[in-house]
Amino acid sequence: MNDVGVEVVLTSGRTLKQGQTMELGKLNQKYFEAVAICEVDKSTLEALGLEEGEPVKVKTATGSVVVACKLDRRAEPGIAFMPCGPWANAVLDSDTIESGMPRFKDMDAKLIAAKGEKVPSAEDLLKAIVEVP
């Protein structure tokens, strides 16, 4: 499988749309559209050969998840952002270094163009996570 991609530091956090759509329902299409995304700068999009909205695979040592890529005009190369939620947490390391807190904010990740791949719904993502042996 083609594993060529762009290495980034992946961070996560709240966005206004994530907060708004969460209140509409976490299994809602609008929440899916607001949260199953990865924001990057223009040069990263170009390097991946992707247009905004196309699928990108976010891969860490813990696992990978396919989400829609989104252009953040304020962003700089080297840092990618995902709204907090099921898709960002699917690649999150569970080690809390005995603090109780996983490292949500600065994960080493690789972004890989994933044209043709489907962004999983919350239900499908959950199924994929729990069905792994």
């Binding site: 976490k26 813990t62 696992g63 907090c84 939620g85 099921p86 947490n89 699917a90 999150l92 390391d93 569970s94 996983p102 919350a122 959950l126 996570i129 729990v130 792994v132």
Partner: peptide
């Protein structure tokens, strides 16, 4: 909603 906000090993 821990299933949405915990790492996958915890959800599993």
């Amino acid at each position: 909603d821990p299933a949405a906000h915990f790492p996958r090993a915890a959800i599993r």
